[in-house]
Amino acid sequence: MTPARARAIVDDPSWALPRPGGGRTLDRFAALVRACSDDISTGRLVEAHADADAILAEICGGGTVPGEFWGVWAAQGRDTRVQAHAVAHGWELSGIKEWCSGATSCTHALVTAHTDAGSRLFAVDLSRAGVSADSSGWVNAGMRDSDTGSVGFDAVPADAVGEPGAYLDRPGFWQGGIGVAACWFGGARKVAAPLYRAAAGSDDPLLRMHAGAVDAQLAAGWAHLQAAAREIDADPTASSKRLAFAVRWSVEQVATAVIDRVGRALGPGPLAADPDHARAVADLTVYIRQSHAERDLAVLGGLTGGRIPGPGSETA
């Protein structure tokens, strides 16, 4: 099972991702790329655990502990919410959180919840009484193996992580968003692999044309991730919000183009007869929808401040 594979990766004593902003951010991104190049759903779960470790370190100086398997459940459903209540011994969470990857397999999770002072992040031991998880409602084949579902909380004890707003108001939030783009990029590499294999043994000019286009697109996506890693390490405390929106949009376009090009080049054969490729295409198609598409572009447009990318970031 995918969650078991992901947990085996993070439990391996030799596996430890550098935290973003510490001088080895590119190594972190490269590890996430490799994980999703191997299996997209597994890489997605690994990324969440690594993100939880980075969040705990940034906000409270902590981190994950060997033997734990963490999720980060911060999405807000349209019709559901989790409410945090202050009690004598700390906090309790009640409500339903949707879009929880690792819903039935994580041992711990960072969960955003509403408080009277605003949204706040909480750490939850998922073995506690009052936690119920259900991933049976996921009907799409894409990302089905990521064990994504809804988790209910009924007066579940939780530990506050930082003050209200701390989860969003930190440089690492946007750095983590670029880490997700690294996962999308790894997924695009996995989708592209059959085309590379086919083009290597063919003199068909159209097949080579598609392979060339995909190669250029992947090179551009990787270059953007490399540049982002350098920028983060150069000033880890600076906001990477504009950078994150730009990189995520760029990599989403690469992933979309790769899916289309590979399909045009190879036809329906791999989608119908190669289960690994069919699963990768389905996984990546769903995964990149974590992007908010044109809404994200509108946000990016509002962040430019008239500064044009390039040498000196000239103002128009």
Rank of each mutant, 00 (worst) to 15 (best):
M1F: 14
R5M: 01
R5Y: 01
A6E: 03
I9P: 06
D11Y: 00
D11Q: 08
D11T: 01
P13Y: 13
L17V: 03
P20H: 10
G22F: 09
G23T: 04
L26Y: 11
A30H: 04
A31L: 15
S41M: 13
S41H: 12
L45C: 10
A54P: 07
I55V: 06
L56G: 00
A57E: 14
E58A: 15
G61N: 01
G61Q: 07
P66K: 09
E68T: 05
V72S: 08
W73Q: 01
W73V: 01
R78S: 07
Q83H: 12
Q83V: 03
H85A: 14
V87Y: 04
G90T: 10
G90A: 07
E92G: 00
W99Y: 14
T104E: 14
H114C: 12
L121Y: 02
F122T: 11
S132R: 12
G137S: 04
A141G: 04
A141E: 12
M143N: 03
R144S: 02
D147T: 07
S150E: 13
V151D: 02
V151G: 02
G152T: 15
F153E: 02
D159H: 12
A160L: 05
V161R: 00
V161L: 03
G162H: 13
P164E: 00
F173G: 10
W174R: 07
Q175F: 09
G176P: 14
A182K: 12
C183A: 11
F185L: 10
G187M: 00
R189L: 07
K190Q: 15
K190L: 14
A193E: 13
L195W: 08
A198D: 08
A199C: 10
S202P: 03
D203W: 04
D204W: 02
P205Q: 08
P205R: 07
L206I: 07
Q217S: 15
Q217N: 06
G221Y: 06
H224Y: 09
H224L: 01
A227L: 14
A228F: 08
A229H: 05
A229W: 05
R230G: 06
I232N: 09
I232Q: 13
D233T: 10
D235T: 02
T237N: 09
A238P: 04
A238I: 00
A238R: 13
S239T: 15
S239M: 11
K241R: 08
A244T: 08
A244H: 06
A244F: 05
V247Q: 04
V247K: 05
S250K: 03
V251D: 11
V254A: 05
V258N: 01
V258S: 06
I259E: 03
D260C: 09
V262T: 11
A272F: 15
P275N: 13
P275Q: 15
D276Y: 08
A278N: 03
R279D: 01
R279L: 06
A280D: 09
T285G: 11
V286R: 12
Y287H: 15
I288M: 00
R289E: 12
R289G: 14
Q290F: 01
S291T: 12
S291M: 09
L297S: 11
A298Q: 11
V299P: 04
G301L: 14
G302M: 06
G305Q: 13
I308P: 00
P309D: 10
A316N: 00
